Simulated scan of single mutants.
Amino acid sequence: MRLTILGRDGPYPAPGGACSGYLLEGPEGPVLIDCGPGVLARLRQRVDVPQLAAVFYSHYHPDHVGDHFVLRYVLDIARHLGRPRPAPLPLYGPARPAELAGRMPYKDVFAPRFLDPGERVTVAGIEVEVRATDHPLPCLASAWSAGGRRLVYSGDTGPGAADALVELARGADLLLIEASLLARRGDRAPGHLTARQAAQIAREAGVGRLLLTHLLPEYDPEEVLAEAREVFPEAQLAEPGATVVLS
């Protein structure tokens, strides 16, 4: 598997930046994980959108799905320009809240499957397990396994799901985890982690690699990284455009 960071900002993009969006290339093609504001333009620099194997959403807050509502136009217009997909694009996301899940399909360009915590599903040849996180809106953390390698993405979560996330991420090759807050500033916000808490989860899970994402644009990323490295010295930032190969 190969992971490319398309965007890492939250809950809004930095100047010239993009919110959450990650391209995971696996056995059966590329999967887009989250598609926040600014992500679609960066995605189109790397793949022909109709060639995506699937799209997967952690939850339906706008900073994670904002560009979905224009992504659908790319797929629809491709058909009119003679470049249709052979079948609707598989779309995965939480089953709740039902009213937001119901907004994700569009015409017949998607083949949606909505998931509940604890489910396992195969997405583009990758085995995926999902768990509930601690967030005001239902959100799914996800573990992606293929070729003996494992990537875990936290989605958005607060410390209330730390034990569950440690269990999901135990021994993972890579943990991509939100670090919205700074403990050294005394930050508190429902459903989000400090960089220190993110690093503690990584340490307890014994992951091979830690990438910090969902960074608040108003904070210096180096300050976020420094706080995480007090607990997990090898922590790194999810750098837009960077690619990590899990092999």
Results as ranks from 00 to 15, higher is better:
190 P>W: 01
162 A>Y: 04
48 D>T: 13
107 K>Q: 15
93 G>P: 12
208 G>D: 13
82 G>F: 02
103 R>T: 14
25 E>Q: 04
186 G>Q: 08
5 I>P: 10
239 E>C: 07
67 D>Y: 11
104 M>G: 09
211 L>H: 05
62 P>F: 05
60 Y>R: 08
155 G>F: 09
85 R>M: 14
229 R>S: 06
61 H>V: 12
19 C>V: 04
172 A>L: 03
104 M>L: 14
135 H>P: 10
52 L>E: 06
53 A>S: 09
71 L>I: 06
144 W>H: 15
110 F>Q: 14
100 L>G: 08
240 P>F: 07
123 V>M: 08
98 A>L: 11
233 P>T: 05
142 S>C: 13
91 L>Y: 07
47 V>I: 10
100 L>W: 14
122 T>W: 00
234 E>C: 00
57 Y>A: 12
142 S>N: 12
88 P>Y: 06
65 V>G: 09
62 P>Q: 07
239 E>D: 08
94 P>Q: 11
236 Q>D: 02
41 A>K: 14
51 Q>G: 12
156 D>L: 13
12 Y>P: 00
46 R>A: 07
171 G>R: 01
164 A>K: 06
37 P>L: 13
67 D>P: 04
14 A>F: 00
101 A>R: 08
169 A>W: 03
94 P>V: 10
40 L>R: 08
143 A>M: 10
185 R>I: 00
194 T>D: 02
22 Y>Q: 14
15 P>H: 02
13 P>W: 08
113 R>K: 15
11 P>E: 02
102 G>L: 03
202 A>D: 04
50 P>L: 11
209 R>P: 06
126 I>F: 00
118 G>D: 04
103 R>G: 00
64 H>A: 10
140 L>A: 12
175 L>C: 07
168 L>T: 08
10 G>R: 09
92 Y>Q: 13
76 D>F: 11
114 F>Y: 13
203 R>I: 05
149 R>N: 01
140 L>W: 12
157 T>Y: 05
93 G>T: 15
187 D>L: 01
171 G>F: 05
213 T>R: 01
58 S>M: 09
90 P>R: 07
223 E>K: 06
162 A>D: 15
119 E>Q: 15
68 H>A: 02
130 V>E: 10
150 R>I: 02
86 P>D: 09
180 S>N: 03
41 A>Q: 11
160 G>D: 11
230 E>Q: 14
11 P>T: 07
72 R>Y: 01
227 E>N: 05
247 S>F: 00
32 L>R: 09
200 Q>L: 15
95 A>R: 14
98 A>K: 09
205 A>D: 03
80 H>W: 10
7 G>W: 02
229 R>A: 11
160 G>S: 12
148 G>L: 05
131 R>I: 13
230 E>T: 12
200 Q>S: 14
123 V>Y: 06
62 P>R: 04
209 R>V: 06
27 P>Y: 00
218 E>N: 00
145 S>A: 15
110 F>P: 03
206 G>S: 04
